[in-house]
Each structure stands twice: as C-alpha cells, then as structure tokens.
C-alpha cells in the first residue's frame, strides 16, 4: 500500500526558476562525471525571458512510458514510483520518449539506452539538482503536497485581497 508521502518527485516553481541550468550541470556531473546538459535528467526550458522552468520525471500514476514500451524494458517501482530501465531489454526505440508528456525520458546518445530521473537514489544527499539550485526553485514533492501548496497560496491570496479591500 502506497502512503501519501512516499511517491515523491522533483518539481520546479516557475515563479522562482530563472533558467540558469545549474540543475542540468549538476545532474550530468552527478550521473556522468561531466558537465553536459544533454546528459541531464532534468532539463530547462526557456520559452521566452519570462517563462523559465526546469522539467523532469513526475512519476505519473499509470505511467505512459511504461505502457508504451513494447519490450517491457520499463517498469515502475511500486513503493517509490521510480521508472526503472532494464538495460538489457531497452533497444533505444524511443516509444517511451514519445509517450511521455513532459520530455522526461531521454535517449543517451552514447549508450543508446533511455534514462530517467531516479532522484539520485545512490547519492547520500538526495537529488543534487535540489541541493544546488541557487534560487531554491526545486523541491521534492508529492501530488498531495502540490495540492496543499496550491490550496494554501489560493487562500492566502484571498485573505490578502480582502485585507486590501478593507484598507481602501
């Protein structure tokens, strides 16, 4: 039975993200001992100067990447929600890449096997992107925490608005 605090993923606060790519550099450094954004498990998108956001695996319920794989190379860990890639089965066909709505699955252009954020499961300090983000824009969340945050900020805003109305 999955508890509400178990299934975590990295989420970026679009208000705080400045598009600096430090998460990309530190992810590729952690995983591949090289600075190279294309090898990062988290990618930054700057649609224009005002729209910056880092995107990575959101550990979907019933993940489409897993469903799409014709070779059963992907499966989702039941407790953590991590997408696990079986290196022997993956042949780099890319159906999982197409299936993912977030572009969180990528094909490693050297090993020819797909790779996905695993929350730095082998690192003592947890996800390195979060640790290094200078803007504190990244955080480890669950869907419940995201809902809580949205709720709280909506209510805060409502009360701020009321306060402003009173002051008028």
């Amino acid at each position: 039975m999955v508890k509400i605090h178990d299934k975590k993923f990295v989420s970026a606060d679009a208000e705080k993200c400045v598009g600096c790519q430090i998460c990309e550099y530190m992810c590729s450094w952690t995983k591949e001992k090289a600075f190279n954004p294309i090898k990062s498990r988290i990618r930054v998108v700057r649609v224009n100067q005002l729209a910056n956001m880092a995107v990575t695996c959101r550990r979907c319920e019933d993940p489409p990447c897993v469903a799409a794989c014709p070779r059963d190379a992907l499966k989702q860990s039941e407790d953590s929600g991590t997408i696990l890639v079986d290196d022997d089965k993956c042949n780099g066909c890319g159906w999982c890449i197409e299936a993912c709505d977030y572009g969180a699955v990528m094909l490693h252009f050297e090993s020819k096997i797909v790779y996905i954020c695993d929350l730095c499961k082998d690192e003592e300090g947890g996800p390195q992107c979060i640790k290094w983000c200078p803007e504190e824009a990244l955080s480890l969340v669950t869907s419940d925490i995201l809902a809580q945050k949205a709720r709280i900020s909506a209510v805060r805003k409502l009360f701020q608005d009321q306060k402003m109305h009173r002051e008028k």
Binding site: V18, C20, L50, P134
Partner: peptide, 18 residues
C-alpha cells in the same frame, strides 16, 4: 516582472521589464 540568469549563474541579474 522577472529577473533571470545566464547559464551556470548563481546570482542572476537580468531584469526583464514589461
């Protein structure tokens, strides 16, 4: 409306105005 940063910058300075 937003201050953004260059690649690898940990201070960010670019003041975007609208």
């Amino acid at each position: 409306v937003k201050i953004i940063g260059c690649s690898s910058c940990a201070m960010r300075c670019e003041h975007e105005v609208v």
